[in-house]
Design a protein around this nucleic acid. Structure first.
Lengths: 221, 221
DNA sequence: AAGTCTATTCTTGTATACAAAATGGCTTGA
DNA sequence: TCAAGCCATTTTGTATACAAGAATAGACTT
């Protein structure tokens, strides 16, 4: 297992990430090192470490001798990231179709069942959790740990925007139908079919595009 | 244009990256902060910044309260990374097939011509440069800047291993034929064909696999 | 003699002090 | 009145000092 002990800087980075995700820090806003230092009751050193981590993951932009600024992705970049996410997941599905283990396939189906239950119960948080697990299984079953890591990284980055999407009326039901198609394709070991199904599931097109844009203007106000 | 002024820590990170790539620092070796500080004639602060950057890009592993250790990818991870690279480039090619501009297509063809010339002249460095440009055009012409960045990132990481591969006898000629097939498919705007061609070009299979493994054992001695 | 406990030393993580560069405001001149 | 240049303040980048956890070696016990 991974080392659980983490330094303060790491926890601060996670906290800051959360604060950026939930909109506490607006787009373009400068993150003052001394202010954050007093806020977290630490010196500038761990703050700077945390900011550098965020800069590398793309959440903030670090301009030399100027400071770091929150950098929320714009509409174009978001579409681009979702496009890449869709393609990466499609690769996972393609590979998983032939590489998946029997136990994992069981897990995939039971997760999907639990997912459906949360839809019936209108349990958005529950859906969110089970859905994430559903996708995580596919990443893992691609049999490519590096690919899995890349998927998790991008998923994490898109997390807040995906969550917004879930609020769209009827989205959950449609999403479940798509899950169903993915599971079917994988059961048939049809890689291309699975890839197409999950690409459809993840990519932002049609109505989803419209809703994503709408959510952005809301978030920007 | 980008800000050209960079801090010392950034240049140190690049230097260290080079030192890891060329094997000056062996796999598993601990990078001592004070040693590096005196080597670069700076304090520990910029060294630590640089090491954290390397840790995030995966070149070194940072174990809390222990230090950072060089982490060269093993055979399995290398294969995995090449698999992802092949799929990412396949996506680029698929998208570029329909999105590419006329000028870029011209550039692609002329780059390929220059590439062939370097093969004739047995100019390995020249081939390396032109080949990289060839791929960079495809990344850009995917029309997805985020995808482009991800491709460049991974390409950079695989750079040293790809370079080794070029030394294999006859590889350059075969590689040119593959380029030719890619260009043809894109000229026909056939996304799937282009994707398949470049996937074949990048992925490590058959003889290439064998040579990659051989190069690893050489590097490890 | 081997193992363990402990003290010392070394290394990382954090705080603070200092240097250099950028921003902003003021003055001065046209 | 406006612009340009200079000074003060603010802020980032780097160096150093300090604290805390880990490695190591030596002594003591069984």
């Amino acid at each position: 297992m991974q080392n659980m002990e983490r330094k303060r800087a790491d926890r601060i980075a996670d906290d800051l990430e959360g604060l950026i995700f939930d909109g506490t820090f607006a787009d373009g806003e400068r993150l003052d090192e001394v202010q954050l230092a007093s806020r977290f009751s630490v010196s500038r050193t761990p703050i700077r470490e945390a900011l550098q981590r965020l800069a590398q993951s793309g959440l903030v932009e670090q301009i030399p001798r100027r400071g770091v600024f929150v950098r929320q992705p714009g509409p174009v970049e978001l579409i681009e990231m979702f496009e890449v996410m869709a393609e990466l997941e499609a690769v996972c599905a393609k590979l998983a179709a032939t590489r998946i283990s029997d136990e994992a396939l069981e897990d995939l189906q039971s997760t999907n069942k639990r997912c459906m239950a949360t839809v019936e119960a209108s349990d958005t948080d529950g859906y969110y959790r089970e859905n994430q697990h559903f996708h995580a299984i596919l990443y893992r079953q691609s049999g490519n740990r590096f690919l899995e890591q890349e998927c998790l990284r991008l998923q994490r980055r898109l997390q807040p925007f995906r969550r917004i999407q879930l609020r769209v009326r009827g989205r959950l039901k449609q999403s479940m139908a798509e899950h169903e198609a993915i599971v079917e394709a994988i059961k048939e070991a049809d890689g291309e079919k699975a890839a197409t199904a999950i690409r459809q599931h993840v990519s932002v097109q049609g109505e989803k595009f419209h809703h994503l844009m709408a959510s952005l203007t809301i978030a920007a106000e």
